[in-house]
């Protein structure tokens, strides 16, 4: 008697979820609402201005770094926690690094051709985070993709201590820049640098500075994470 018991609650949940989402479909299909009436009306309208606004054209960066700067700080610290956990489980300083399988010849020859473009794209996205789409996270991951390609081609990052130092230094500079707002500005993560001319590279006060630090921290963290990931493999 190995009859499988089928939970009737499953079907009830399935039918209930389908009924809920069928009712929600017209919400996605309706396009009468304008984009600025949907969400963040006040935030989007005050973003380009100087009084209370961030003074930058990119609304997403203004929300992520300026209005919700504490959330970004938490996000960066969560990533730091993940990197620490991976290093705790996988990272061994003494492990010998010998690659068993030789990397593909295409990878080993094309890395020098592709590398500068990866790096340049990542740095462009980081530095123009307050003007064009993208920012610290995306650009950091892209610039780290360059080093991941090097790791795939069999090279290793020798200066791991320098890497960890840069990572922690960028993270603490973020907090220092944010804390200086208590003295010179209004609040934590407040604006105290001159805003500059609208829609140019040197504008936006502390927002590009903070995003550059976020980009450095995310990039170095991902490099260290992936290198720790590969350490165990060489150990066995």
């Amino acid at each position: 008697m190995s009859r499988k018991f089928i939970n009737p609650l499953k079907f009830i949940w399935a039918i209930a979820l389908i009924l809920i989402f069928v009712n929600l479909i017209p919400v996605f299909l309706s396009t009468d609402l304008k984009a600025e009436e949907r969400v963040g009306d006040v935030l989007l309208s005050m973003t380009p201005g100087n009084d209370g606004g961030a003074g930058i054209p990119n609304g997403v960066t203004a929300v992520v770094v300026y209005y919700r700067g504490l959330d970004t700080l938490g996000e960066v610290s969560v990533l730091f926690l993940v990197s620490t956990a991976v290093g705790l489980f996988f990272g061994r300083e003494k492990s010998e690094t010998k690659s068993e399988t030789k990397p593909n010849e295409i990878v080993s020859h094309s890395k020098t051709l592709v590398l500068p473009h990866f790096m340049l794209t990542g740095l462009y996205i980081i530095f123009h985070g307050h003007l064009s789409p993208g920012g610290g996270f995306q650009g950091g991951v892209m610039a780290a993709g360059m080093v991941l390609l090097l790791l795939l081609a069999g090279d290793r990052v020798k200066q791991t201590k320098a890497l960890h130092f840069i990572e922690g230094f960028a993270g603490s500079l973020y907090i220092i820049v944010a804390t200086l707002g208590l003295y010179f500005g209004v609040s934590f993560l407040g604006q105290y640098l001159p805003l500059g001319e609208f829609n140019t590279l040197l504008s936006g006060g502390i927002l590009p500075v903070i995003y550059i630090f976020v980009g450095i921290k995310v990039g170095t963290e991902i490099i260290g994470l992936y290198q720790n990931f590969q350490n165990k493999e060489a150990e066995e």
């Binding site: 990119n58 997403v60 960066t61 996205i125 789409p133 993208g134 920012g135 996270f137 995306q138 991951v141 892209m142 993709g145 991941l148 991902i222 992936y226 990931f229 590969q230 165990k232 493999e233």
Partner: peptide, 26 residues
Amino acid sequence: APDVALTEAAVGTGLITLVFLSTLRK
């Protein structure tokens, strides 16, 4: 939503595939 698209392209397509593949190899 180009910001979200960039994040998805960098993290969701590139990084996660790389990490999953290396995990599978190990």
